[in-house]
Simulated scan of single mutants.
Amino acid sequence: MITIDVSEVTDERALHLLLMREPGFPGFYGMSWDAFWDAITGLVSIPDRVRFLGWDQLAAGIPCGAAAALRWALDNYQATYRPEFVAEYA
């Protein structure tokens, strides 16, 4: 399990930088939701559990639906590839 503290993230770029660092995305990560999908479905190994701390702050503080896009991607990843995967939003 990894825990990612998103409570201090204030924009979508900072979120992608954090997502790149924590699970260990490659340096060529494109910092977009398409690139995020490509990374989690084939470039990196995601643990069975990922916990996001400060989710409410992230959802309230980032424009353009970035929190919703992240949650959608992880829910779709679970449904499509790994039913045992769990994302927690605390």
Rank of each mutant, 00 (worst) to 15 (best):
I40R: 03
A73E: 09
L74V: 01
G30N: 06
Y29A: 11
D5E: 15
A39E: 05
D5M: 11
V6I: 12
F28A: 11
G61A: 08
I2F: 07
C64V: 12
E8V: 10
S45G: 13
M1V: 15
G54S: 02
R82S: 06
L53G: 10
F85E: 08
V50R: 01
V44Y: 05
M20S: 15
A14H: 11
L17R: 13
T3N: 02
G27D: 15
V9K: 05
A39C: 12
R49P: 06
R21M: 11
A90S: 08
G42C: 00
V9T: 00
A90L: 08
R13D: 13
R21G: 06
S32V: 07
R71C: 14
R71G: 04
E12Q: 14
R82N: 10
I4V: 15
Y77I: 04
E12F: 14
A73W: 05
L53P: 02
L18Q: 09
F36R: 09
A87G: 12
E84P: 05
W33M: 04
F52V: 06
L18F: 11
F36A: 06
D75G: 04
I2H: 09
F52H: 08
D11T: 05
Y81T: 04
M31T: 15
T41I: 13
G24V: 09
I62A: 04
Y81R: 10
R21D: 12
L58G: 03
G65P: 00
P83T: 10
M1I: 13
G65Y: 07
L15D: 07
M1G: 12
A69G: 10
A69R: 14
G30H: 01
R13Y: 12
R49Q: 15
L17Y: 11
G24Y: 04
T10E: 06
D75H: 01
D38K: 03
A35L: 02
L18V: 13
R71K: 13
S32A: 09
G27H: 10
L17A: 09
Y29P: 05
L53A: 10
Q57C: 06
M31A: 15
A68P: 02
R51K: 14
I4S: 01
G27V: 08
A90G: 13
E22H: 00
W33E: 08
D75V: 02
I40N: 00
G54D: 02
A60K: 10
Q57P: 00
D5T: 07
E84T: 09
A79F: 08
Q78W: 07
D75K: 03
W33G: 04
Q78G: 08
S7W: 01
A14R: 14
Y81Q: 13
W55R: 03
D11H: 08
E88I: 03
V44K: 01
M20E: 15
E12N: 07
R51H: 09
R71Q: 14
F52N: 01
L17S: 09
V6S: 00
P63C: 11
L70P: 01
A39N: 04
D56R: 12
F36D: 00
G54H: 07
L53T: 13
L19Q: 01
E22T: 09
F25L: 04
F28H: 14
G61M: 01
P23E: 01
F52A: 03
G61K: 07
S45A: 11
L58C: 10
Y29I: 04
L70G: 02
